[in-house]
């Protein structure tokens, strides 16, 4: 069966990559031809980079950079318009007592609440990310998924976080996943597309690498580790694999694509470990909110507490930041 893959412009891709997406079989050949991930090696490298000590001025810089990279997230069934507005206020001014604290990168909500977030963040320059495509499981028909995306885009979301069909991916129906990402990308219009791979459900690092390349080939602007609803969520070694993929993509095509670890990053120490990994694996040009994000809710408060500790010279406590 030789099915031609979707209608995206492939003219800009170099010959090797353009050939990869010619049809189903060549896509499979390309993804299975990717070099395997050395599991022991990558876990060891992630652990050794995690021990790097960042102190004083560098730490303060890292904290501020991390704050500006946070996608402040609320994805609960119990979310209300009021909660989204409160979150938006926090996104604008994370620490009202210290107005020099940078704002976060974006607020991440369900599509039906995107309009509220857009309204609350108007004029701030802070993005609104909306999850879509039957988040978090991705189990629905394509027309439903696309309608979900359309709702997010119509509401004014500047970023769409889609989930891939893990079932199709694990069954080896790569072409279907590829076309779905392309269709969502087309439905996004000007909005940035983040492709959630849900690495915790993919099983192996090899699969994570394949999914990352699949998402990049199909036009995802970001590859994102997880929905935050599955454990394990973001892990350092898993993020290493994604960072390698975007760096290799840059080498092959000259295009910069982003990475977003999400879920389970709760402390400043964790966040700084991720920043070290970004710097060492992808490169310093990725240390910007345009190319690296944290999907997190409780991380922001810990960053704010650590920022206060650095500036005040003594430890702070949860009484000094807003709890949501």
């Amino acid at each position: 069966m030789r099915t031609r893959l979707g209608g995206m412009a492939t003219a800009t891709l170099p010959a090797g990559l353009a050939d990869a997406i010619r049809d189903d079989a060549s896509l499979r050949r390309f993804l299975h031809g990717l070099p395997g991930v050395d599991q022991v090696g990558i876990e060891q490298r992630a652990a050794s980079l995690g021990t790097r000590s960042i102190k004083k001025a560098a730490k303060l810089w890292a904290i501020d950079t991390a704050i500006s990279m946070v996608d402040l997230t609320t994805l609960e069934g119990a979310d209300t318009h009021g909660k989204v507005r409160a979150l938006a206020a926090k996104a604008r001014r994370p620490d009202p007592e210290r107005p020099d604290t940078p704002p976060v990168a974006a607020v991440c909500v369900y599509p039906d609440l995107a309009a509220t977030a857009v309204e609350a963040l108007r004029g701030s320059g802070i993005g609104v990310a909306s999850v879509a495509t039957a988040f978090p499981s991705g189990r629905s028909g394509r027309d439903v998924k696309l309608a979900d995306v359309a709702l997010a885009v119509r509401s004014g979301a500047s970023e769409v976080d889609m989930v891939i069909d893990r079932g199709a991916f694990l069954e080896g129906r790569y072409g279907q996943v590829f076309e779905e990402i392309q269709a969502v990308k087309a439905a996004c219009g000007d909005a940035h597309l983040k492709v959630i791979l849900e690495t915790g459900e993919l099983g192996t690092y090899d699969n994570v690498r394949r999914a990352a390349w699949l998402a990049l080939l199909a036009g995802g602007d970001f590859v994102k580790t997880s929905t935050g609803k599955v454990s394990p969520a973001a892990t350092l070694p898993g993020t290493h694999v994604l960072l390698q993929a975007v760096r290799d993509w840059y080498t092959a095509t000259g295009e910069l694509r982003g990475v977003k670890p999400a879920g389970g990053i709760r402390t400043t120490k964790d966040a700084i470990r991720y920043l070290v990994a970004v710097h060492e694996v992808a490169g310093p040009e990725w240390l910007t909110p345009g190319l690296f994000r944290f999907g997190a809710s409780s991380l922001l408060n810990d960053l704010l507490l650590q920022r206060r500790t650095q500036l005040d010279g003594h430890y702070s406590g949860p009484d000094y930041v807003t709890q949501d």
């Binding site: 206060r308 010279g313 003594h314 430890y315 702070s316 406590g317 949860p318 009484d319 000094y320």
Partner: peptide, 9 residues
């Protein structure tokens, strides 16, 4: 001193 200045003690 760290206990004395700690904001959460």
């Amino acid at each position: 001193p760290w206990l004395a200045s700690h904001g959460d003690v």
